[in-house]
Design a protein around this nucleic acid. Structure first.
Lengths: 193, 193
DNA sequence: TCAATTCACATACCCGCAGTATGTGAAACC
DNA sequence: GGTTTCACATACTGCGGGTATGTGAATTGA
């Protein structure tokens, strides 16, 4: 294995192990030396690849956010109608947000650990941007009542984040469907009359 | 000063200083010994009154949550009509949630630090409970379309939490009003037709 | 009223872990 | 094939949360 290949392999292994542990134990309870040891390297290697424990966490958050965004976008793209794209994307977010890794890493630890500004920048890049675009298109098309899109985007984004957090803790197998219905009700109320 | 009075005074001083620092610097960056020193006692005193750094934080969160809940309830109680009570309460929450202490302690750090379950229990006790009650009453009265209240409560609660987080970072002085309008739009969409 | 007890702290200490400074040996380059 | 690079390993520091124990003044009870 060439040096570049070895480097990439080590980096990827640290990222994967970090992801597992951050998701399972939360940022604070993860000890960097143990992540490295589990991968067969020492702490020094971790600091060679990531500037700090926070740096590794940041990389994990970005990775999970990206995957989440792709799932939501794929669900939306399965539809042609813009309104159905919005609905499908929202439904997909609720479903995907229940994943333990998304829940713990992205929704719970990231805002407090990275800070809200950085978290929001990542969320914007991978998720909220799509939501804002969809809403803007629907407002422009006259489907949704004319109004500023930005506050609405934050309201809906927050609604879905919290709902996903709740869903993941709910024992009720019907919870996802009931949350999707409730969200449909909110969205339906946005239609221009 | 009697011993009981002294005890209460020290406890309150630690709580107040902790509150200031948790709000200003965030949970992680606060060092317990410095909180104690600022109050004129040592770390030992802090551990005598609170079982740990987390214990002090827990007490601060509960205090801020309680005040927040009282503000929202007071705003709601200023109205007689249940629908207006809901609106006023939501508007008050958005306004109060911008407060730096509420923002940092309750909305940002508490979920990750106390864990979502404990955070939700506190939120339920002081805020979400009122919201759920109001929605239940409106559903029973036929004002809001019949539906399960629990998922709706979480959606709205999350919407307001995130909106408050955003508002506090917004430079636009109109942001609060625009968020309240957007929220009104969502609520209006809930009315039974 | 004074000895016994309680208790609200102070003092001293441990240790886990993030971060850093420096060494090293094998691959890449010239 | 000598030099440089670089992907790590090793060894160390320091901060800070937590704990174990001491202490003196307030409280209590006979």
């Amino acid at each position: 294995m060439s040096r570049a290949e070895q480097r990439e392999a080590t980096r990827r292994a640290l990222l994967a192990e970090g992801r597992r542990r951050f998701a399972a134990d939360g940022y604070h309870d993860v000890v960097l030396a143990e992540v490295a040891q589990a991968v067969g390297v020492t702490k020094g290697a971790a600091y060679h690849h990531f500037e700090s424990k926070l740096g590794l966490f940041r990389a994990v958050v970005a990775e999970v956010q990206r995957e989440l965004g792709e799932q939501v976008a794929a669900a939306a793209d399965a539809h042609a109608d813009p309104w159905e794209q919005l609905r499908a994307g929202c439904h997909a977010f609720l479903a995907a947000g229940r994943d333990p890794t998304v829940r713990r890493v992205v929704l719970l630890d990231a805002p407090a650990t990275l800070g809200w500004d950085e978290w929001r920048a990542l969320d914007e890049e991978f998720s909220a941007r799509h939501l804002a675009d969809a809403l803007t298109a629907l407002v422009d098309a006259g489907v949704v009542a004319d109004q500023p899109v930005e506050p609405l985007t934050h309201l809906l984004s927050g609604a879905m984040n919290e709902a996903a957090l709740w869903l993941a803790r709910s024992a009720d197998p019907e919870a996802l469907v009931s949350a999707q219905r409730a969200l449909d009700g909110l969205l339906e109320g946005l239609r221009a009359r």
